[in-house]
Amino acid sequence: MTTPTLYNYDLDENCYKVRLLLSHLGIEAETIAVDVMPGKEHLSPPILAMSPKGALPILKHGNLVLTEVEAILVWLARTYDPDKKLLPEDPDTLGRVMMWLSFSARTLDVAVAARATALMDMPGDIEALRRKSYDAFRIMDDHLTIQQFRGEAFLAGGTLTVADIALFPSFALSRDFNIDHDEFPALRRWANTLRLIDGFITMPGIPDYH
């Protein structure tokens, strides 16, 4: 099987999610660096032809072009994880995985925006974004507390799925937009567990300790 191509920007947490999953799966992808800051290359015609919003990551494999990180994670899991652990087949677990992927895209997107506003001068109401991010982290922390009482260490069950990969970076990077980890004990524990998965990699702002 040919390897996929990832259009990547190192400081983008959505790109990191894909790099992390590739590393966990042991897949060598061709990576093309996109100079977002300061080059604004993500708004160049060749990138916009693939990703009209100018959003990264983009994954190319033969004629397939995927944008939207949740879709890329799902495709990678289905393609390269023969045991189907990362995207389980049983309907209940799959439903929970999709629920948290939707949460990542619809609710936790405020954390991506908060970080872009704080670090990359994206226009936005940083206080409102921070408050909403804090509320989203609370929902995750409450859920993971209950998961712990169930004896399950991950979002969708007892084992790692793409949902964990999708939600991990925004919490790990929350100090970039001034939300500390102090008030989220279950998220701290979960993040520490994720740092121990096979093939864990770091990014600026996500070291391998804590």
Partner: peptide, 10 residues
């Protein structure tokens, strides 16, 4: 027991 703590957590 852990499982019995869930209603209290909610």
């Amino acid at each position: 027991a852990s499982a019995d703590q869930i209603p209290y957590s909610i």
